[in-house]
């Protein structure tokens, strides 16, 4: 298995993995807090912290992916050639798009905590 980010599928899916972890943490934390009868404010605080961390991580992944895609350098978009550069930019491009969709996912998942202030 390869861990060089320019040729690694794992880097490409790092952002959605961050989304999954955020989702599990937020869900597990809320379930525990509500089941123990603690204050929903505690749940919301935890959600805010987890969301902040997830956004920071996804932003970092997205930034690296953007640089790997290197769009503004040559405006390559399709990456359908047989070269190393095509593959590298493709993985960057796909990683960047996945970071974007993961970011939206994290924001969506955190949004109930903005509107709902109780466990019931």
């Amino acid at each position: 298995m390869q861990f060089d980010r320019r040729s690694s599928l794992w880097h490409m899916i790092a952002a959605p993995i961050a989304w999954s972890l955020h989702f599990c943490v937020v869900y597990g934390w809320t379930a525990s807090v509500c089941a123990r009868g603690w204050d929903a404010g505690t749940a919301r605080l935890g959600i805010a912290i987890a969301t902040g961390l997830a956004i920071a991580f996804i932003a970092a992944i997205g930034w690296h992916a953007w640089k790997q895609w290197d769009y503004l350098d040559d405006f390559d978009y399709e990456h359908d050639g047989p070269s190393v550069e095509d593959r590298r930019e493709f993985l960057g491009h796909a990683g960047w798009l996945l970071a974007l969709v993961s970011l939206i996912g994290v924001l969506f998942n955190a949004s109930p905590a903005l509107f709902i202030s109780s466990c019931v």
Binding site: I13, I17, F23, A31, G105, S111, S118
Partner: peptide, 29 residues
């Protein structure tokens, strides 16, 4: 790839009427 991941965050929407905390329902919604 995105659908593959996100589709794992939906399961409780089959369980909306089971009395889980409304905050939890919100995540799955």
């Amino acid at each position: 790839v995105g659908t593959g991941f996100l589709s794992f965050g939906l399961w409780v929407h089959h369980m909306f009427t089971t009395g889980l905390p409304s905050l939890s329902l919100g995540f799955f919604s």
